[in-house]
């Protein structure tokens, strides 16, 4: 088979990077799943042995974390729509959407920061508090990584590097944003919502 004229610009399942980012996401999702399993493990152990009533103290407000879901969904949407535009070769428009994504994501960080400052407990108060602090900070780090990465991608799009064919970096960054958004939902549900249920 003659492959001389075949394109070398792939930004989809035909490129190893697409699979590579999926690998990273599977690993990180497993990490989060194990964190959440540990959370329920401690809940069950504490309840069944009457060691400590779960969550063992005041429950944090869900206002900021809930607003953040909306903001994160916007980030995911802006990257998705940016990808649609870049396939029409509107690279500048994509660049502005990347900027919008970064700005809104900074808002996510700011709200997260405010929320952490106002938590009704410190991380060493009990195991539940440790989970809230660590998982919220872990996700904070991911949003920050997303912002930094997207800033670079956006800069390259303004410089004219990305085209309707050469946009693998955009796709990888977008997929990672989907993960940042999607991973927040189970974490939010488990650490902020489930303690409100009295089983």
């Amino acid at each position: 088979m003659n492959v001389e004229k075949w394109t070398r610009y792939h930004a989809d399942l035909k490129h190893p990077y697409w699979w590579g980012i999926m690998g990273l996401i599977v690993i990180e999702s497993t990490v989060i799943a194990i964190f959440l399993a540990s959370y329920f493990y401690l809940w069950i152990v504490n309840s069944s042995t009457s060691r400590m009533a779960w969550p063992g103290g005041e429950i944090p407000s869900i206002f900021y974390p809930s607003v953040n879901i909306g903001l994160l969904l916007f980030c995911g949407w802006s990257m998705w729509y940016g990808g649609v535009l870049i396939h029409k070769n509107k690279t500048k428009a994509f660049g502005w959407l990347a900027v919008a994504c970064c700005v809104v994501a900074c808002g996510v960080l700011w709200l997260r920061w405010l929320q952490m400052l106002n938590l009704p407990f410190s991380y060493d108060q009990n195991a539940y508090a440790s989970f809230v602090w660590v998982l919220s900070s872990f996700h904070f780090m991911h949003v920050l990584a997303g912002i930094l990465g997207t800033a670079v991608i956006g800069w390259f799009s303004f410089k004219g590097y990305y085209t309707e064919q050469r946009n693998l970096g955009v796709q990888i960054d977008t997929i990672y944003w989907y993960y940042i958004v999607a991973s927040w939902i189970p974490v939010y549900f488990v650490i902020y919502i489930t303690p409100r249920f009295q089983w």
Binding site: S38, V45, N46, R51, Y123, Q125
Partner: peptide, 18 residues
């Protein structure tokens, strides 16, 4: 200073083993 493995405040030693 988190307390994932401190049994006196909701943590658990066996969690590490699991």
């Amino acid at each position: 200073g988190t307390v994932f493995f401190d049994a006196s405040v909701g943590g658990d030693s066996l969690l590490w083993q699991h």
